[in-house]
Deep mutational scan, measured.
Amino acid sequence: MAAGGDHGSPDSYRSPLASRYASPEMCFVFSDRYKFRTWRQLWLWLAEAEQTLGLPITDEQIQEMKSNLENIDFKMAAEEEKRLRHDVMAHVHTFGHCCPKAAGIIHLGATSCYVGDNTDLIILRNALDLLLPKLARVISRLADFAKERASLPTLGFTHFQPAQLTTVGKRCCLWIQDLCMDLQNLKRVRDDLRFRGVKGTTGTQASFLQLFEGDDHKVEQLDKMVTEKAGFKRAFIITGQTYTRKVDIEVLSVLASLGASVHKICTDIRLLANLKEMEEPFEKQQIGSSAMPYKRNPMRSERCCSLARHLMTLVMDPLQTASVQWFERTLDDSANRRICLAEAFLTADTILNTLQNISEGLVVYPKVIERRIRQELPFMATENIIMAMVKAGGSRQDCHEKIRVLSQQAASVVKQEGGDNDLIERIQVDAYFSPIHSQLDHLLDPSSFTGRASQQVQRFLEEEVYPLLKPYESVMKVKAELCL
């Protein structure tokens, strides 16, 4: 049975990233139509530049190519590739079939990587351009969430054990800070992308030097003109047959890092959902379990974690691919890159769409948070109580021993009897502590235990987050809708 299948058929496997999760716009960027249309555009740009620099290419040939950029006979191309065992030459023939007058000058002087690699770089750039505003929107939604809850005390956790208090907004800023680093890295790697350009079979530009009869300047002009037509500021000066596969490492490393950030955020949300302090959106008709109707599973956060793990592992592909590119190139890269580049971007696209949807509907339960604080705060307040007693004339050592005994009794009630923490009640009825009984409410005010959390939130948002989001103001209103 021949390899390949009808990918629109229910009898043929289709990647869930495309069929179930990723956005239509990201799927289109990695589609065959987008790819092969870009090949034709690159052939047109090459012909236009070659004509401008004096090669015998007519206006009629150029116009014929322009008129057929979208006229792609995919069936013919597939048949040609089956016959020739070469995808680029299959599309040269297919393009030439609908451009008979231009057929002889299509791909003039070029090698397969002229269309293959340059198209990949265009796709990487455009895919990054799709991700950047999506990530900015996630940051914006979380920034709104953090600002609104900047002063809401909550129990902090280290080692997932109760620690000092923080605020809900401050905790959210930990998430935002990681995503801001990801946004900066995505922008950097996007701006650092260079075009492969017009380089020939081993990167020496020998074929173009021959076409222009040894004119170095025209060869350099050709490279520059096509690079500018493709919208790049610069091209690699040095290439082998391909652009260095280190570029793929750079791009997928940034995406993998984004995956790590999203995994951490969504894990926190899942843990908070278990504590009943916070939940992701839950639709009115949504079913959490087929057997347990009360369940409210954090399905979206779980999906993000599941896909983020996949995204983090994909960076190993370009690392290994770059390491086995012998001399000017081997074909070890080809099949692998067809999979890992598309999957990385479709996965990143999915987790950003999902995280935006989550961040637009996060639900906080202040009463649950308050109750958990009441359970733990008495123990945390013991040092403040000791200091207040010393100020009232008591002995630190005597007070410490009193607190120690009462704390152990209260802990026994919590752990052995399943009761509430009654340390404060014990202190309130103990005559030894009568000098500070009137101060206990103040000493137990949760806001006095959150330090500068709310001020940190305000400063972080104003100095770091809002300036970073400013270039994306025009796209901030787009909502994230999930079908599944």
Rank of each mutant, 00 (worst) to 15 (best):
D6Q: 03
D11M: 11
P16K: 12
L17S: 13
R20Q: 05
P24W: 11
K35Q: 15
F36L: 13
R37I: 14
T38W: 04
T38A: 08
L44R: 06
L46F: 07
L46A: 05
G54A: 10
E60R: 11
E60V: 12
I62K: 06
I62L: 14
E64Y: 08
E64F: 07
N68I: 06
N68H: 11
N68L: 07
F74N: 13
M76R: 14
A78W: 09
E80R: 12
F95P: 00
F95G: 00
G96S: 10
H97C: 12
P100M: 09
A102Q: 03
G104V: 12
G104D: 10
L108K: 01
T111Q: 01
C113R: 00
N118T: 01
T119P: 00
A127M: 01
L131I: 10
L132I: 14
V138E: 09
D144P: 12
E148M: 09
S151G: 13
T154F: 07
G156L: 00
Q164T: 06
T166L: 11
C173I: 03
L174P: 06
L179A: 12
L183N: 05
Q184P: 11
Q184N: 11
R188G: 07
V189Y: 08
G197I: 01
G197R: 02
K199A: 15
T202Y: 00
T204M: 05
Q205P: 00
Q210A: 08
E213C: 14
D216G: 15
H217K: 09
H217D: 11
K218R: 14
K218P: 12
E220K: 08
Q221I: 09
K224L: 13
M225T: 06
E228F: 08
K233H: 09
G240Q: 06
G240E: 02
T242E: 07
Y243W: 05
E250M: 09
A256K: 00
G259N: 00
A260W: 04
A260I: 00
A260V: 05
I265D: 01
L271T: 06
L272Y: 08
E279K: 03
P281N: 12
F282E: 07
F282L: 12
K284Y: 14
K284H: 10
A291Q: 03
A291H: 03
P293F: 03
P293I: 04
R296Q: 12
P298T: 06
S301D: 08
S301Y: 04
E302A: 01
E302S: 03
E302P: 01
E302Y: 01
L311A: 06
D317C: 09
D317W: 02
P318D: 02
L319N: 01
L319F: 06
S323G: 09
W326F: 15
D332T: 00
D333H: 05
R338V: 01
C340F: 14
L341G: 14
A342S: 14
D349V: 06
T350E: 15
L362S: 06
V363S: 03
V364L: 10
Y365E: 05
E370C: 08
I373Y: 04
Q375E: 06
L377I: 13
L377P: 01
I386P: 01
Q397P: 05
C399E: 06
C399G: 08
C399L: 06
H400A: 05
R404D: 00
L406S: 06
S407C: 11
Q408T: 13
Q409D: 09
S412C: 12
G418W: 04
G419L: 11
D422L: 07
L423D: 04
I424T: 13
I427D: 01
Q428K: 13
D430L: 07
D430C: 11
D430G: 06
A431R: 13
Q439Y: 06
D445R: 13
S447Y: 15
R452H: 07
Q455C: 09
Q458P: 08
Q458V: 14
R459Q: 12
V465W: 04
V465D: 02
P471T: 15
